[in-house]
Structures are given as structure tokens and as C-alpha cells.
Design a protein around this nucleic acid. Structure first.
Lengths: 135, 135
DNA sequence: CCGCATCCTGGGCGATACTG
DNA sequence: CAGTATCGCCCAGGATGCGG
């Protein structure tokens, strides 16, 4: 993010069949919990239950496990198991994960700036299309 | 909070219960076709069939309609119906849509820069976890 | 405390057929 | 051409219960 050498892609996607891997990133970021987990971990190291309690919206154990496992597989999160009783597992962002958190921050800023406009557009559209199943 | 950790993070989301509307954006960008539609429209005005043919992956009429309708509702796309026979409908990005395309560009650049690392992490993880159903 | 196994439901998505 | 209508599949994700 900080390095200033990125002049590879002139067009958005030079090859239509090649999406540079944005899909991989969006498939992760697009799911229900990954962003919240990344945001919470950007605040510091967290244990499993800490994560679960900190995340708004009542994430189930199953989904937290899946989410954090996939993030680990993608190299965004490091998982550390302490051989204690009872067991303790710490989660923290990797360098790559912090970089992704930076991207999320960028997206968050964009959203904050345009969210109101979006909501307004939606309201107008819904008013102009009384019965639509678009949701 | 953990001490000794670099405080680069300026609080991603000040209020945990407030996600600034990133969810709205990610719910759209996270679906299967929106990004590709936005990218194609960032190249210029397109008609319905043009869009369908230009997008790789064989998008169905139904999904193209749904995708483009939702983008219109969110104020990203302007839809213009010409009263001709046969009917002709043009789609183009709004100012807001172009702004979003810019964000997608940012995400695309990030992905291009880190995709290889991600793929490598996945390969290593999969190797270290021979039998896992995480995918 | 930290998970995994299992069952179940809702909605995203595709295929197909029909209309103006 | 540019949609609408219907059906059916698949899978993300919730609930629950067990195990180390």
C-alpha cells in the first residue's frame, strides 16, 4: 500500500477473462463475517471467545471457525495454539492481513462518503417503482 | 488492548455497531456479476445484449437483469429506454458509478499486487492440512 | 475454552419457456 | 431486442450437540 510503484494495469482488466484475483478477495470480503473479523483483529491480538463477543451480530461458533480458518488459509490471519489447559488460541493479523485491513479502510472511507447518496437513490427508486421484487 | 503493538490503525470503525454502509457496498460487490458489469460499463455505454455478450462466464438474462436493476437502484447505473422497434435500452455509469469503478480499480490493484502471495499461502495451507473441507 | 459433526433453511443463481 | 415468469439446485450460514 505504501510503496508507490504500481503502473502495471492501465485498463481495469486488460484481459476480460483475467480478473487479477479480485474475485478471490471479493468472495472473502463479500461473505457475512470476514470484514468484521479483520476489523476486530486490526485492533490487536484476540482469542476465540474474545472475537466472538466483540463482533456485533451474534456470530455462531461454526461461522467464526470457518471465517477465521479461511482467513488463515489465505494468509491474512496467524493462528497460535497455546498448549495450556484449558486451551488458548490467539489470532492476529499477518502483514498481508494488515495490508488488507488497509484496503478495507479505503472501502470504508468510500462508503462513508457515498452511503447517504446511495440510500437516497434507493428511496427514490423504490418510490418510483412501488411494486418491485428487487429488494 | 495489547501493548507494544504498532498503533498504525486509527480505529477502522469508531463504533463497532456502525459499519458506515460498507456492508451495503460489499453485498453488491460480493455478488457474482456486479463487478464485471461495472467494469464493462466503465468502458462506455452498452446495450443489454452487448453487456451480456461482453461479460465472460455466460451470465443469464435473468441475472443480468437483476444485477443491472440493483445497480440502477443504488444509483450506480443509468438506464435509458428508447421507444424504438425493436426496443433498445442503454446502460451507462452515473457519476457515483464511476466513483465506485475507481474503488474497484483500487481493489483490483491491491489484488494484482498480492494475489500471488495469497495463492502461495493457500497452497502451503492445503499442503499442511491434507484433509480439510474448508475450500 | 476451542472447536468439529450433523441437520436444516433461505436465498443466490441457473435453465427454460413465454411476451411486447 | 429486452425483458418477465417459473422451477429447481446448491450452498452459505444458523442451531444444536458432542469431544479434547
Amino acid at each position: 500500500m505504501s510503496a508507490g510503484h504500481t503502473a502495471v494495469t492501465t485498463e481495469l482488466f486488460s484481459d476480460p477473462s483475467e480478473d487479477c484475483g479480485v474475485r478471490d478477495v471479493l468472495d472473502r470480503l463479500g461473505d457475512k463475517w470476514s470484514v468484521q473479523v479483520l476489523v476486530e483483529l486490526s485492533r490487536g491480538v484476540r482469542r476465540f471467545r474474545e472475537l466472538q463477543r466483540a463482533i456485533p451480530g451474534d456470530i455462531s461458533q461454526r461461522m467464526l471457525t470457518l471465517t477465521v480458518r479461511r482467513l488463515e488459509r489465505d494468509g491474512m490471519v496467524r493462528r497460535t495454539v497455546h498448549a495450556t489447559v484449558p486451551p488458548q488460541v490467539d489470532y492476529e493479523l499477518t502483514e498481508l492481513g494488515r495490508s488488507l485491513a488497509g484496503l478495507i479502510r479505503t472501502m470504508s472511507d468510500w462508503s462513508a462518503e457515498h452511503h447517504e447518496a446511495i440510500v437516497e437513490f434507493r428511496r427514490d427508486w423504490d418510490a418510483a417503482h412501488p411494486d418491485a421484487e428487487i429488494r
